[in-house]
Design a protein around this nucleic acid. Sequence first.
DNA 1: TTGTAGGCGTTATCAC
DNA 2: GTGATAACGCCTACAA
Lengths: 332, 332
Amino acid sequence: MNRGPTMVDVAEAASVSLKTVSRYINGATNIDPKLAERIREAVLALGYRRNLAAASIRPGWTSRMLGLIIGDLGNPYYSTLARGVEREVHERGYLLTTASSDENGQRHDELIDRMLEQRVDGLIIVPPYTGGRPWNELRPPLPPRVLVDRPAPEGDGYSVLADNARGAASATEVLLAEGATRIAFVGDSELISTMAERRQGYEEALLAAGLEVDLSLVDHGVHTDEQAAGAVQRLLDDHGADAIFAANNRAAIGALRAFRARGARVPLVGFDDFESAELTSPPTTVVSHDIAHMGAVAAGTLLTLLDGGVPAEQTTVLPVTLQRRGSELRVQ
Amino acid sequence: MNRGPTMVDVAEAASVSLKTVSRYINGATNIDPKLAERIREAVLALGYRRNLAAASIRPGWTSRMLGLIIGDLGNPYYSTLARGVEREVHERGYLLTTASSDENGQRHDELIDRMLEQRVDGLIIVPPYTGGRPWNELRPPLPPRVLVDRPAPEGDGYSVLADNARGAASATEVLLAEGATRIAFVGDSELISTMAERRQGYEEALLAAGLEVDLSLVDHGVHTDEQAAGAVQRLLDDHGADAIFAANNRAAIGALRAFRARGARVPLVGFDDFESAELTSPPTTVVSHDIAHMGAVAAGTLLTLLDGGVPAEQTTVLPVTLQRRGSELRVQ
DNA sequence: TTGTAGGCGTTATCAC
DNA sequence: GTGATAACGCCTACAA
């Protein structure tokens, strides 16, 4: 296997010592212009490229690679997040290695191990909902890391989150303002911290309006569009729901499917924007936040840590906004 | 900086030689069970993790990292592609480093350089439309690589493509079957090879139906939704278009916007599926292909190359399918 | 300003 | 079956 020219080859070709080539490659200034020119030519002639992997094992040097572990790169939510991270870290000269855990704890752990073996300088992680070993027991301890979209356990480490409770509350408030009194909550498992927070915001808004929480209107078992569609059908037909709070975008899309199937709709507000929320009829109102920005903030926090700095906050909570588009209205 | 325990540390702790630890870590079988157990304990106690970066500089060893360079990770098209690649390469034990070029030739080149310095074993690339240095002049030559969604220049290398011409032709044929005689083509620059191929398929279908190509019905200047919406308005108002072939999904979404704005629609077929094409009214008919599969095929081709094999074809053309949903019909 | 010697963590060679 | 020793490509003392 051809491993390409090394610094030694360049040094020989330029009739210079190894060290001088090293200096040249690393941009040192104190080099005789004559030698520099000879080296430059040799580099071009040989097609030399430095070997960062070799350089990185020297003391004081690092890989300048970061790892990003998310649930599923194919999910627009995560890919937007990844894009935000990527932009930030590339700007600072880091390479980003991305991997999907599929929300599988074991897979997640394997990916972390693999990245640590590759000696990434830091990690940005969206941990799976369940499974995976507890970090505090990890030997050796993880390198600098930042959690995204999930709270760090007991403040052990840094995390960046959206204001899920506030967002859910404002979604619920909008539906209440339309006169709804039986607002259904459709979402994924409560074990997912964001879901728990959204549920909490929903309840707080109901209670603040003097309404009781009717558990028959709460469905936490929705993992797919189809399940959501079925859930919404049931909530409307059997439990007298008069408005829907869809706690994630799969739930929202499912609700839209259910509306279409029965040829009638009720007021709807979703959480997390989706590509063509504006194209539905009526356009779908959602609580949304800037996911790419969340990624950028997480990356910024990690880079601060890597620079030896101390981020301003352990937990950064990012604001959410209500995108009013019409679907929250009773009449169109 | 703490660099973590090394094999030497483990060897000392286990009272074994360095080489034996190496054997153990690499899964060699011929080790005295007693020693193996001592090593196992030492590894656990010290929290040893092997350093793949160090291992990779040895002759005959590689980084087991691959690079993926795409246009924009935030674009669902690319992230789906990335996901397909990821799945395939992870299965084979490779780590994937992903980066977005933003269709910028210089940035693209820099990313390639960076990845080569990091010594990736191979590259999967979606080259930018314009700019970027010609590869054949690259010194040293690139490692094994596969192009996706863009043809390899002059058969120099491997590539995986969708059957753009055939897809565009069948889209056009469907609109013709509806009785349309002035089908507009709305798409991005012809410099993009996929666009050129789609344009070609469109023309072939028209000619086969005995129609002439009216250049006033062809708009190649559409880069965004908004531009597409404007273009469709003009084509309908000023040039008497009676059907729209939207040659990418931005164009399709723009056409839908235009329809909404004027309160009337004409038959429409898009190219490339989009998240909620089924949610529009009527649902949008598109020519689509399995992007994740395209990524997986590209990854498979690259892995074959890395294994020293010879892929079956230099250029793999993947089939496309027409997803009939209703928007191609004249009346709903 | 330049060069020499040594070590980073790992694996391969080849004796024992 | 095991272990000294020598690379791999690079960079940093330190000496010249």
